[in-house]
Design a binder for these strands. Structure first.
Lengths: 173, 173
DNA sequence: TGCGTAGGTTCGTTGACTGAACCTAGGAGT
DNA sequence: ACTCCTAGGTTCAGTCAACGAACCTACGCA
């Protein structure tokens, strides 16, 4: 966001303070991709089609905020990956509620992605509640393309999401 | 947001499309204030301490998006107010989940505001669920300052929020 | 020697956010 | 009649974040 990402007059409001961390452009889409199993800079980049500099800045901000952790998964050549922390995992209800609202009021009821409870196969309501089992952990959520999905993109993330997959399972072996 | 509020590569994703509408700086705080019972330009302005031009732009964008409606509540002199539509009211779970996450992971567990179910007095979990009665309509939510609240500000909205009040009840008679 | 990949940094340009000033139109006070 | 006040805006110059293209580093491989 331009000129000040914080809301000085709202230090007392949890929503405002939260938005200072997760309310910047691209940030929640990076977190969404992390739930989709994206872990690498290059995969975020190809899927989000955002400026490299902004991605680097956001990844380090999210790491500093304790939402992601950076881990070296290979030495020589050095390779890094970004994983959700507990605080990051706790953001699933936020993403889910945005998705639910938008599916209804922005996408006009078209179903581009389907979320089900991996244990029982039931379709989730509000993105994180199973009508049979109650609140569902993100790791128990399975997603798959819905009837109105667009399956044209060819980046590694879009390709991986063409078949059913659980949240948080990495898109690469 | 600077340079393009939309996410062109993500036309297929409900979360991304939703964020194009509600993800801009200040937008969700305006919606939050609308839930708090704020309806007038000047009250939004005094409480949010944001640039007038941005407020005017956001109010008209939210109106165009069908989240708020503009209504003339008085002729001569002409006075306008902004009210949440059904699509706007449906955003409560989004705000509530952000607030819940932030209260835990950003505010460090301090309780600046308390949300209770107006019918039974029970404290809400996740900002919109009563442990006894289930999912609660925003109009049934009562909020009051918590033990860690900051009660220093003197604008009309902050003053009105110093005592218990239901969401959506206007802050002025 | 050259090419490819992963994970960045640098840099000039564009444009959204900022804050202050200004505008309109009707009351209200003196 | 003149001034001040309120509500709801618009205008404008300056700043700084986002953009995107180019560049960089370090290693592996042919």
């Amino acid at each position: 966001m331009a000129l000040g990402k914080d809301y000085d007059g709202q230090r007392d409001c949890a929503m405002a303070r939260g938005l200072e961390l997760i309310g910047e452009r691209w940030t929640m889409l990076i977190v969404r991709d992390a739930f989709y199993g994206v872990r690498r800079y290059s995969d975020f980049l190809a899927h989000l089609e955002m400026p490299r500099a902004v991605l680097a800045e956001r990844l380090s901000a999210l790491t500093a905020a304790g939402i992601l952790t950076k881990r070296r998964y290979q030495e020589s050549p050095a390779r890094e990956e970004y994983l959700l922390t507990d605080a990051g995992l706790a953001l699933w209800p936020v993403l889910a509620s945005i998705g639910t609202w938008s599916a209804r009021y922005v996408m006009g009821g078209k179903v581009h992605r389907l979320y089900t409870h991996a244990d029982c196969g039931e379709r989730l309501v509000g993105g994180s509640v199973c009508p049979l089992c109650g609140v569902v952990d993100p790791a128990e959520v399975e997603l798959r393309p819905g009837p109105d999905a667009d399956l044209e993109r060819e980046d590694p993330v879009s390709v991986a999401l063409r078949e059913p997959k659980r949240l948080l399972v990495p898109i690469r072996a």
